[in-house]
Design a protein around this nucleic acid. Structure first.
Lengths: 95, 95
DNA sequence: TGAATATATGAGCAAGTATTCATATATTAT
DNA sequence: ATAATATATGAATACTTGCTCATATATTCA
């Protein structure tokens, strides 16, 4: 049985995946890196809202950034995320 | 790219795992079935709070129940949950 | 039957979250 | 330099969540 602090961190990880907007962002990034403006168009949300969400994902180290001029390109930092996403989706679709 | 409704359901699934209390309950149930009172003791929370959380997990079909007299025994409904839990924990502990 | 026990549920509240809007910072172009 | 563009951030607000407390429902026991 893990420690309390580990449950908290695990909850934070799943929490990062517990919002449809963030999942759409993650789904978008699974197809390759994108800058903030592109992501905003793809998920149909304001750039500000996207930027706020990306901040959370950044702080959780689920995405990483590459700066190119004034654009910032985001990509998934870690394949654990993609695996969690896929496993969850399997459960939702079949299962 | 999944549909909006699927993102919502996926978010709900991860949302069910996004709270330390619920994760403790799930962790407890991974070791076998327990009734509400036992779970309350093990996770150190009121029976009411536990019952409320179990209701959510039930509605998500993540746990199932077996009634025996006036007690209700809960167990994990589905190994997807245990797999998500384990994969998430791997990410939190190492990686 | 009536009291005791196990669980479930509803209302209410405090704390957390996701968005918008306004503004700040950084970079490029004129 | 100044304007334009891309992103980030802070404050405000509406919505959601997790708990407690009181109460309801079921089941067993005396």
């Amino acid at each position: 049985m893990p420690k309390r602090s580990e449950f908290t961190r695990l909850a934070e990880l799943f929490g990062a995946l517990s919002d449809p907007t963030r999942l759409r962002i993650i789904s978008t990034l699974m197809e390759g890196e994108h800058n903030v403006g592109e992501i905003a168009v793809l998920v149909e949300l304001s750039e500000s809202a996207v930027s706020h969400q990306l901040r959370g994902l950044r702080q959780m180290h689920l995405v990483r950034t590459r700066k190119a001029g004034r654009q910032v390109f985001y990509s998934l930092d870690d394949d654990h995320v993609a695996r969690l996403y896929q496993l969850g989706l399997d459960h939702v679709l079949h299962g």
